[in-house]
Design a protein around this nucleic acid. Structure first.
Length: 435
RNA sequence: GUGGAAGUAGUUCAAAGGUAGAGCCCCAGAUUGUGGAUCUGGUUGUUGCGGGUUCGAGCCCCGUCUUCCACCCCA
């Protein structure tokens, strides 16, 4: 026997394996979101991971183009992995516009790829949860996306999420008033960094860009907030004054806010005029979501209104608004805050002759809706308890009673035993099982 | 893609060019009346990987991979 050359097991930079302790809560969250999106009348779709290169290029801006994984396939086609779910969705809309009834509300949860340098909460392969409404441009659809964002985080039991909202149109009004709308892309990019580099530095860079002190200060006073927690309407009123009066955009924001009030969720939202979003395709409302205490991870749910996205692929006007939850980033921020278990109960193996009995008990408990694992070998109990703990299984059943249908149920967390019938055990376990 | 820091046992950390160590964890056995205590024994390991300098490298040098941080951008 020759010694075999071992291939070094490894994964690519920015790509990760998921152990069950990570994958179980991740899939639980996905299931929760799928159900929740459906409760708003959103429907699922799917698109290919791989697209023609030309489909994905030429909308996000030069920087995102550089991050696209692309190659030539065996047939000589220039292809690329999707780097978000929104651009493929725009292509999908153009391709199927006659098969879809507008307004179209879809959700899409899947992996995307970007060739960025990885950091915590930033990977080259990650999962996005997108939800969008296409075919209407009004406050009602804007507000429904915001409502769905807030309620999704509530469903995921994340209560420290803060939603920062702004409006591209309002900001562009300011730039027009100041006569610097031709610099809008550069200014937007700079303004986005306010939270990171501070007011002084922002003002200096603004001055270098617009070459006028009065203009630079006007922009800065628009995007700065003295009180970070200033109520939404107070900020909006202040900005309306700075813009010289109401316009269609400010009135849109007021209507959206009134819908949030009607739902009683308005205090979850802040008007944050420094939010602009790097992507060029946003035209109206924009938003980012931060977790208090984990701001360094960045936004865990962002999006906005894009009224011209599908125009790359069709002449039909298809306005849209949507948002995307960054699931991997969210899980990175939550770290160990989530709970998981491989099963609700483990049936211990004390005697090989009783395995048939174990199978019958397992079947009955599974029919009652429980997750049940069986111990395959009659190892000593300490060893079986440890296996259960390693798999986060909180209870064990020992088939040790001679009298019919009665056995020991052990709580592994408190290490206490109770003797009961199978029906009693099923009821007790059912009350304590997750989901 | 650019710049910086780090990488030693499953894990938390030592070893300032001279024989790779400690706690926790894990495994086997004894005893324990179906885990927690105690005792005995054991693996804790290609010091990320590959070269180089040296009598000798975990340590110095070069390259490379990965992670983390900053820039850039973003989920």
């Amino acid at each position: 026997m020759k010694e075999q050359e071992i291939i070094q097991p490894r994964v690519l930079k920015g790509f990760r394996d998921s152990l069950p302790a990570v994958q179980i809560p991740k899939e639980a969250i996905i299931t929760t979101l799928q159900r929740h999106f459906a409760s708003y009348g959103f429907v699922p779709i799917d698109t290919p991971a791989l697209e023609y290169m030309e489909i994905l290029l030429g909308k996000g801006g030069g920087e995102t183009d550089k991050q696209i994984f692309h190659f030539t396939d065996q047939g000589g086609r220039e292809v690329a992995l999707r780097f978000d779910l929104t651009v493929p969705f725009a292509r999908y809309l153009a391709q199927h516009e006659h098969e879809l009834a507008l307004p179209f509300k879809r959700y899409h949860i899947d992996k995307v790829w970007r060739g960025e340098n990885p950091q915590k909460g930033r990977y080259r392969e990650f999962t996005q949860c997108d939800f969008d409404i296409v075919g209407v441009d009004n406050a009602e659809s804007d507000a429904e996306i915001l409502s769905l964002m807030a309620s999704s985080f509530a469903k995921m039991n994340v209560d420290h999420a803060r939603f920062h909202v702004a409006h591209r149109g309002m900001f562009n009004t300011l730039l027009c008033n100041l006569g610097v709308e031709n610099l809008s892309v550069d200014i937007l990019r700079l303004v986005d960094k306010l939270r990171k580099i501070g007011e002084t530095e922002t003002e200096e860079q603004l001055l270098a860009l617009v070459q006028d002190e009065r203009t630079a200060r006007a922009i800065l006073s628009y995007i700065s907030k003295e009180d970070e927690h200033e109520p939404f309407l107070t900020t909006l009123d202040r900005l309306v004054t700075l813009l010289g009066g109401e316009n269609e955009h400010t009135l849109r924001m007021r209507t959206i806010y009134s819908y949030l009030e009607a739902e009683g969720i308005e205090d979850r939202f802040l008007f944050d005029p420094s939010i602009t979003r790097g992507l060029d395709y946003y035209t109206g409302i924009v938003y980012e979501t931060f977790l208090e205490g984990s701001e360094h991870i960045g936004s865990v749910c962002s999006g906005g209104r894009y009224n011209d996205l599908a125009s790359l692929y069709t002449k039909t006007h298809l306005p849209g608004v949507g948002s995307s939850i960054g699931l991997d980033r969210l899980l990175a921020a939550l770290e160990d805050e989530y709970d998981y278990r491989a099963a609700d109960v483990l049936i211990l193996n004390t005697d090989e002759d009783r395995y048939t009995e174990a199978i019958k008990v397992a079947k009955r408990l599974r029919e009652a809706g429980l997750k049940v694992a069986l111990s395959f070998e009659p190892k000593k109990l300490a060893s079986q308890y440890k296996w259960a703990e390693a798999n986060a299984i909180p209870r064990a059943i020992i088939l040790d009673q001679d009298e019919e249908g009665s056995f020991t149920l052990r709580d592994l967390t408190t290490r206490t035993n109770m003797v009961m019938s199978i029906g009693e055990a099923a009821a007790l376990l059912k009350r304590n099982c997750l989901d």
